[in-house]
Computed example of a mutant assay.
Amino acid sequence: MKRIAFIAVLTLLGHMSQAQSPATTFAEKLGYPKGKKIIIMHIDDVGMSYESNQGAIRAMEEGVANSLSVMMPCPWVPGFVHYLKENPTVDAGLHLTMTSEFKDYRWGPLAGKPQVKGLVDSEGALRKGVRDVVKNATPDEIEIEIRAQLARAREMGFEPTHMDSHMGTLFATPEYIERYLKVGMEEKIPVMFPGGHNTVAQSQEELVAEQLQMTRKVGQMLWAAGLPVLDDLENSSYGWKEPESGDKSPEALQAYKTEKYIQALENVKPGLTMVIMHCTIHSEIFPHISDSWPTRQGDFLAMIDPKLKAYIEKEGIILTTWREAMERRKKIK
């Protein structure tokens, strides 16, 4: 999420008194041990391409990643859903997609252009940027497309464990946030929203106390609706492009990204935190989709690095999933 997301929350909820740090984390409320870092190692952009699918599968089967979300309008969704049917315990959610950001590799809305004209550009695809979506798409169109993506998942036999937002588009205006939260609460599907102490998010987004309090009020609302809530969100990995040396070899990317993840986990405070990443295997094709391949390949290589696994075990970090968090929440009255 960008800083605009939290400003939108501020506008949505109105002014409140100065923020106070929650006495009890949402992780503790869910029954996780007090004082422990409870981490969801989460992969975005699954279903976007063959490389994205394989990167996610291998990062979970061979590494420490343990959760992911799927871009339902994208071409390689069937391939991943077929994998899910053979592996039904995988923690898989919806990466709700309102944009199609690449130049030559595009996808359109699942609701169809007549239903969501404001989301569609001159190529018949979803718009490339968040600002363009905000300029053209109504909250009603956003909700229609959210529900269309959920409907496709269910028609394919895929019941998502959670929902989040591709490129943070659903956090771009108060009205979009409201529709996102509304669908999650109505459908009883956990939504990615950092509603707790937000130590890392506060640092990354430069939140003032009033904005921080707004996120906590949303967290309380989601908890009251029977959903688990994140205490924090670590969302900086996409900016870790490549080593300063410019070396893009697999060995250099792995060493660089692994160290970055260790540093990030070091800065996380106790509570339930979602760490976001994008994992792809490398191919001759993917660089023609996006020049982000070094950071995506680096994420994958970091997840399967024994050094990262050893650090997590040494520090006593507990890995969990949205599925487990929701199961715990259901047991609490």
Score class of each variant (00 low, 15 high):
residue 101 E to W: 06
residue 296 R to N: 03
residue 281 I to A: 02
residue 244 E to Q: 08
residue 228 P to I: 01
residue 34 K to I: 15
residue 164 D to A: 11
residue 160 P to Y: 05
residue 233 L to Q: 10
residue 171 F to C: 12
residue 266 E to P: 05
residue 327 E to P: 02
residue 36 K to A: 14
residue 241 K to G: 15
residue 97 T to A: 03
residue 52 S to K: 00
residue 309 K to A: 14
residue 41 M to K: 11
residue 148 A to D: 09
residue 58 R to F: 03
residue 159 E to C: 12
residue 168 G to D: 10
residue 40 I to L: 15
residue 158 F to W: 10
residue 130 V to R: 06
residue 4 I to E: 13
residue 93 G to A: 03
residue 68 L to F: 04
residue 132 D to C: 07
residue 278 H to S: 00
residue 189 I to Q: 03
residue 220 Q to I: 05
residue 114 P to W: 09
residue 43 I to W: 00
residue 70 V to K: 01
residue 143 E to S: 07
residue 123 E to H: 10
residue 316 G to K: 08
residue 282 H to Q: 00
residue 98 M to D: 00
residue 239 G to H: 13
residue 234 E to S: 15
residue 62 E to T: 11
residue 237 S to K: 05
residue 170 L to Y: 08
residue 208 V to R: 12
residue 194 P to Y: 11
residue 168 G to T: 12
residue 239 G to Q: 13
residue 259 E to R: 12
residue 176 Y to E: 03
residue 333 K to M: 08
residue 87 N to G: 13
residue 166 H to Y: 07
residue 54 Q to Y: 06
residue 177 I to K: 03
residue 103 K to A: 10
residue 117 K to H: 13
residue 53 N to C: 01
residue 28 E to I: 10
residue 31 G to L: 11
residue 167 M to F: 09
residue 90 V to K: 02
residue 210 E to D: 15
residue 80 F to W: 00
residue 260 K to F: 04
residue 120 V to N: 04
residue 165 S to I: 09
residue 209 A to W: 12
residue 92 A to C: 09
residue 30 L to K: 07
residue 309 K to D: 11
residue 50 Y to F: 05
